[in-house]
Every structure is written in C-alpha cells, then in structure tokens.
Design a protein around this nucleic acid. Structure first.
Lengths: 373, 373
DNA sequence: CTGGAGAATTGGATCGTTACAATCGTTTGG
DNA sequence: CCAAACGATTGTAACGATCCAATTCTCCAG
C-alpha cells in the first residue's frame, strides 16, 4: 500500500482565516494540494458555488463563473474525482481484466475498450490474470475495491462462474468476453467461433481439399472446442471423415505449433490442408512446413483464425478468419456503459460475426498431390 | 460522466437505529452497498474497530478480530479504497499512458508495468494517446483527476515538456519512458538506442559488409534519430561513408517499409545490408526484398531493432537488438513506486541496455556480390 | 480490595466534494 | 407598497473510511 505522509501545518488557533491561507500558500504551495475550498476562498465565494461551476450548472451568474474559472486556472486546481464519486455514489472507471496484454488479440481488444471508454470520459482500470484463476480472483478483488462502475472480464480458463458472481456481487455490472461463463446474470460478448471455423473449412473444401486437418489449440479451451466443432460441422456436411491424426493439440504459440508439424504426416493418408486454432499456430505451421520442405500456400493450404496484424505480411500472407478485436473492445465498452446507465437492460448474449479473409496461404488442391495415394 | 441514482429510502424520523437497519437490509440489500458501519453494527462494535481489523492492526483482540472477519465474510463487504485514500491523502493507483497498445512493444511494456504494480498491490490506470499531443493532454488531465500516486508516460511525438509539467504539477511524480522530454524534474527510463544501433552496425561490418543502409523510421522521431546516430558512429569508426540514398525514411510500419524497398537500389553503389529502425520495418524490408527476387539472409543482410515476438519466427529469423520491453515495464513501475515511497530521491536518468540477438537474417557478405562493381 | 499499567475499544473530527434546503437580493404584478 | 417570483448564492450534512485522543476494560501486584 502506498502511503505518503505530508507534514502539513495545521493552522494554530491564533491565526484567523486569511492569514492562515497566506501562510499555507507561501510555505507549502508545492506540498499541499489545491482544493475547491482554496478556489472559493481565493475569489470570495462559497465552495458550493465553485462546485456548481465545475458541474457546468446554469445557475451561476456569468461574471461569477468567469471569475472562478480564472482562479481555477491561476491556482492550477485539479478536480478530485474520487471525492466527488464518494459523495455522489458513482464511479467514473471501468475495470478491464484480460489474460495477457502481450497476446496481440487482447492488446487490440484492450485498445478498443480504452478508446471507447476514454471517449465517454471514463477511465480504464487494467488487470491481467495470466490465465490463472487464482490471480484472477486476486485481481478482481483488488479492482473491486476501487469501485468501478462496471467490469469487462475475459475469464481465465477454468473460471468458476459462481465464485465470480459471489465476488463481484449484484452491484457491479459484469460483461464477460470471449468465453462462456455460467453461474450469474451477465452480458456476454463472444466470437462466432463455430461459424468462423465452418467458414474456414468450407473455403478449403471449395478449393478441392478433402483431407483437412484441425491444427493446434488446447483441448480444454472453450474457444478451441467451438472452433473444432465448426470444423467438424463442415467436414461432416461435406461427408469427409477426419482421421484421428488430423486433429493435433498444441499450446497456442508459434513455437509449440512449429514443433508439432511432424505429427500431421506420421501416417497416411496425410492431410493437404489445415484449419488452425489461431494465427499464431498457423504461422508456426507455415514455419514447420517450410522447414520440412513443403511450401505453405503451394504444397499445403493453411487457414488461420483472428487476423492478427502479422497475418497480412507473413510468407505467404495468411488466409484467416477476422474477428476485429479492436471493434469488439469498443463494442464491449459501449455495452457496459449502456448497462451502467440503465441497470435494468435485458441480459444480452452477443455473438460477434467472423469473416473470411482470403490471402495466399490457402491454395487449391494440387492435382498431382491430390491423386497420389 | 456516469451517474446511477439509487432510490435509497432515507429512514424516516420515527424509526430508531436497529429497525431502520433491518428495514434497509431487507428492502434494499441488493441495492445499497455494505459499508464498514454495517459490519460494525452487525457485530456490535464501533466502526473504528472494524477499521483496525481491516488494517491488520495488532491492537484488536484475537476473538474480536475473528468475529469481525466472519461478519465481513458473511455480508460480503468490499473495502472502499477511494474513501480510505481520501482520508489518508494517499493513492493506490498509478497511471500508465502509452502511445498505442496495438503496438506490441508498448503492449509488452504495459504488461510489465501492470505485473509489477499488481505485485505491489497497486492498480493501473490506463490511457492511450495515439501519438497525438492533444489527446495526450486530455488523457493526462482525465487521469490526474483520479489522483494517481504516480504517472508513467511514454510521451507522444512532439510533446511539450513545459506544458506537461504545468499540467501534472509538482505533486505527482512522473516517469518519462522511451523519449527525452525536457522541461521538468522527472525520472527518465530510455533505451540505449545509440549503442544498440552501433552494435547492429558493428555486427554487419564484422560480417564483411561495407555498403550498409539505415532503413526506415521518421526523421523527426527522437528514437529514430538516436538509432541513426549510432549507425553513423559505427560507420565513421569503420571509415565507411554512407551514400545519401542508403538513408531511407518510411513510416514505421511493415507495409510502408515494404513499399520503399526499391529506393535502396535506384542508384549504384547499392547497399548489401541494412540496419533497420525497428523490427516492423525490418520485416517489411525482408518482404520487399523477397518480392524483388533477393533473398534476405543470403543476398542481403538485415538487422532489426526491438526483438518483437515475430522476429524469432520470421523467414528468415531476424537478427535484431533486444530491448525487453516487459522488463522495462517492470523497471518503470518499480522506479515510480520507489519515488512515491520517497519523493526526495534524486532524479535518475536510466538508460536500459540493448543487446544483439543474432539470427539468420544477417548473413556474411557474399564475395561475388561484394566485388561486383 | 485497590491502584494503576497495559490492552482494547470508541467518539468525533476529518479528507474533498456534492445535494438539499434555506437565504438573500431584485424585480414584477396587482 | 407588499407579495410573490425569480435568480444567485450559501450553510450544512452527508459519502465511507481513518486518525487521534480519550475512554473503558483487564488483570495483577501490593
């Protein structure tokens, strides 16, 4: 806890008002903070009037307002929103809890949230969980003490909805992002993972591929499960039965994905294309393919998921499913602001659309390859 | 501004203490927030005692403490840190203002800051400027109203130090990151751009290159200027005079960089290697080279700057200067916490080291190429 | 049984702001 | 000339915690 003690001279009883003020202003101008009282005193009005000016109330006479505003400027007064919030029982902050900012998907999301909140004159309280439910608990508790008006939470894997509901209480509206979380009454903003993966798989099918793998991601991750389900939907709709070795699990990182590429080709029939859990994995796959002498986008088709910035500039540029995390961030922020303004809004489950972005990594099936074996 | 009005029943004069409490608790348990008073009342002690428990004071008897803690748990009380901060004249938040979170360098930095602040029980107030001094002014003013204990600012290009000093005032310690900013008394944490670029250039010189370009970045960016100076240092130390067309200015993005690659080769003598302003530019350069039939890492050596995650997995993997933004973030947070704890610390200008990470994009000079013309 | 030293607890003022009711001038209509 | 109406301003009590001095409780030595 931060605690800076200031050795502030409380005026001795012998000094009356003005003298004391002068004394303070000379002696400790740089130590003590200017308050609304100082402004009031400085131009001979009551604190209440200054407060009215700060609230842009039309009740104050124009000339008085001007005088007060000049004094505010002169003394370099800064409004203490915490004090105001305490009195008004309001809050001008929203808490944002994500897994990890170094994941570009979440970084973009956070940027979008912050952008929209700032536009509404609201400040972002940041927290990150590192995908640990224990840290999530701690971070949530810590942020709640700052009485945010609302919370945007991208829950860590394996979160317990009831525990979160108990922690947050009924006072603070919560918006859950990116993952289903049962156990409470809250808004949800999720991606259409299933339809996205169906889109990706359908695209590869349309290019002539039949032996399509689903590559990467953790089995127990809900987003991975949804994407895999979408892939399976599309495959069975096209009457293609995936071989077990076409479903490869990896940590969702480039490096880990690159290491696992071999597993795709250990047994025949080998796949000619892959739908990947996300772009990181897809880029790793491209790398691993190149290392084994297969050229992605020519010998093997790859589709990613997320459309992170480097997808557009990889070699070859990656076909992927765009989810526009920045727009999702703005959307989340706007939704929570709306709910704060009106707590009686109906709970909404919003599934954001995903769209296919075709680039060069998804090539048609090569006849020679397709026919071989 | 957020303002949720609660239709709270103020107890009518006819009701005395306990009845009123019961009424409130039945009628509006889910509306009204639990305060420390409620806990005190709930177990028949004074608010002061509850406060002592919350502060882990050793003055309360163990049995009393247990009783109070149970009540806190039972009622689901959440501490109101804003109220405490108001009374104590302290703050448990630090403001972090960066250019843009979607830049992975800043995202990593922010992650590091948040990590270290959270470990100290302190919350991060986020703000982003989008490299606009006007937004920076607004964001800074808005965050200051929340009375952060300190501010970590990565100033927007073209910031006016005096204006910032005036805005922030002498009360709130400021740590400036990543860019020099004159005009006030504050700590600085910067990267050793000059030495880093010298390292990069020296590495290429050691590989036999003499015709080395400095590619990318904005002329008016201070970090770009410093890196270019480092490059020029190393070149002149090796008695190499750079041709004017070896110094190419671009926006610091992959796409823009890829577009400008042609400019390197419009006139003889053409360079055989390039030190890039940053990794984004370097990756763009690799892309542009490939598009023109030159293979980076074989026909042309490339060195980047920053060591962003994709540098390790590009084609070819990029030799670069690592600055470890996450560690810088932790460092910044720790420094501002130290200064908050002791405002009389001497001002520190910290220049973080940069280290060369050799990968495959920096190849030795090919004899055939080197001798031609 | 009493005095008094600690230990444990508490009342009340306070942090900087705002809501509310009350006040003070001015003006206007009757 | 008074009442009412209005516009502008203000005193005071909160908001939810903490600090400080003062008080009460314990317990033990004498």
């Amino acid at each position: 806890m931060l605690r800076r003690r200031m050795q502030c001279n409380h005026g001795s009883p012998s000094m009356h008002g003005l003298e004391r003020y002068k004394f303070m202003s000379r002696r400790s101008l740089s130590r003590r903070k200017i308050t609304l009282r100082d402004i009031a005193q400085g131009c001979g009005v009551s604190p209440a009037t200054v407060s009215l000016v700060l609230q842009r109330s039309p009740l104050v006479r124009t000339t008085t307002r001007a005088r007060i505003e000049a004094e505010i400027e002169r003394q370099g007064y800064v409004y203490n929103r915490a004090a105001a919030n305490l009195r008004q029982r309001t809050s001008s902050s929203v808490a944002l809890i994500v897994n990890d900012l170094s994941n570009p998907f979440f970084a973009e999301f956070a940027a979008g949230v912050d952008e929209a909140l700032a536009a509404a004159g609201c400040v972002t309280l940041l927290g990150s969980t590192g995908e640990s439910t224990e840290r999530q608990r701690a971070v949530l508790a810590s942020l709640l003490e700052h009485a945010p008006a609302g919370i945007i939470l991208s829950p860590a894997e394996g979160s317990d909805g009831d525990a979160i509901a108990r922690l947050v209480g009924a006072h603070t509206p919560l918006l859950v992002f990116n993952r289903e979380l049962g156990g409470g009454e809250w808004d949800l903003l999720a991606l259409d993972n299933r339809r996205g993966a169906r889109l990706a798989t359908g695209h590869l099918l349309a290019l002539g591929h039949r032996r399509i793998a689903f590559f990467g991601g953790h089995r127990d991750s809900s987003s991975c499960r949804e994407r895999r389900d979408g892939y399976l939907d599309a495959m069975s709709a096209a009457a293609c039965a995936p071989e077990p070795q076409w479903l490869i699990e990896t940590a969702p990182t480039r490096l880990e994905a690159a290491r696992q590429v071999g597993a795709l080709f250990v047994r025949d029939p080998a796949p000619t294309a892959a739908v990947c859990y996300n772009d990181a994995v897809a880029l790793g796959l491209q790398l691993g393919l190149a290392a084994r002498g297969r050229q992605p986008g020519r010998d093997f088709a790859v589709v990613g998921f997320d459309d992170i910035p480097e997808a557009a500039v990889s070699l070859p540029p990656l076909t992927t499913i765009a989810t526009d995390p920045r727009a999702r961030g703005r959307q989340a922020a706007e939704r929570i602001l709306a709910r704060v303004a009106d707590p009686d809004l109906a709970i909404a489950r919003t599934i954001a659309p995903a769209r296919l972005v075709v680039r060069e990594s998804s090539c048609p099936l090569l006849e020679s390859k397709g026919v071989r074996q």
